[in-house]
């Protein structure tokens, strides 16, 4: 088993004349928390969307766990073990918190229409297991008391947590978080840090896109910096922090 979980090879993407990604290559190792930072519009979310199959890259591609990722097949990415959250939270608003997480189990379960109609033993067992795992995950992210509330009625912080629980329900090898701390206050951010630490400890690799430089530097094993769609540097936080190009990218020329 290779040490590298995800390898991006010269990924390029442009929208009309705008080059959102210019041949970005980077690699994420198993078990690490990998940070992806950069100023607004640097191409971080575009990179994410290419990786999870929402966008079709114009060049290059990804290898995940030894398998080439198929472009434009988001559900395949999830099947292979890439789960994600969204920058502007995308929950199933009119479903309960518990149901949201239960939907996350979809990809690891298999009951079909006939199972549902006849409600045979295997289907009932699977359904019970889905529910139990979903409850566990709600406990894990500490919002079990909101299980029966509609997702859209949860507080902002709880919605972020619910989205993480839903992503974890797919049993990912790589969990991608798109600006999870956006809009959070200091306490909430600290709680989030603890949660991510825990997820890493439990063996899931984490890719973190974040604006909060302090959070990234404190949490990540390695950090990549994007600017104008190009990779500036990929290294441990201590090195990245001192790199003049990074400072320039953030402060402007």
């Amino acid at each position: 088993m290779s040490d590298i979980l995800l390898q991006a090879n010269a990924v390029a993407k442009h929208f009309g004349g705008v080059k959102a990604l210019r041949d970005v290559s980077l690699s994420i190792r198993r078990g690490e928390v990998y940070g992806l930072i950069g100023p607004n519009g640097a191409g971080k979310t575009t990179f994410f969307n290419c990786m999870t199959g929402l966008y079709i890259p114009d060049g290059g591609g990804f290898t995940f766990d030894g398998v080439a990722l198929q472009a434009d097949a988001p559900h395949r990415a999830a099947e292979l073990g890439i789960a994600r959250t969204f920058q502007n939270i995308r929950l199933f608003g009119n479903m309960t918190a518990l149901e949201n997480v239960m939907v996350g189990r979809h990809v690891r379960t298999k009951a079909g229409v006939f199972g549902a109609m006849f409600l045979n033993r295997a289907t009932r067992d699977e359904e019970a297991a889905i529910r139990q795992r979903a409850v566990e995950l709600l406990h894990y992210v500490d919002i079990a008391d909101r299980a029966d509330d509609l997702a859209k009625n949860l507080s902002y912080g709880d919605q972020r947590r619910l989205e993480i629980a839903r992503a974890l329900a797919t049993e990912p090898k790589l969990l991608c978080l798109d600006e999870p701390a956006a809009g959070m206050n200091a306490t909430e951010t600290e709680e989030l840090r603890v949660l991510i630490e825990g997820i890493r400890k439990d063996g899931t690799t984490v890719l973190l896109i974040e604006h909060d430089v302090k959070l990234v530097m404190g949490l990540c094993d390695r950090v990549a910096v994007l600017d104008y769609g190009a990779l500036v540097i990929e290294d441990v936080p201590a090195v990245v922090q001192k790199d003049p190009r990074v400072i320039e990218a953030y402060l402007g020329a």
Binding site: H75, A77, A78, F86, N94, V103, H106, V107
Partner: peptide, 17 residues
Amino acid sequence: RAWQAIREDEIAAKAVG
């Protein structure tokens, strides 16, 4: 649940597989 998820947010539904 999958149907309902698609109705609520198709992109998120794809993202969870």
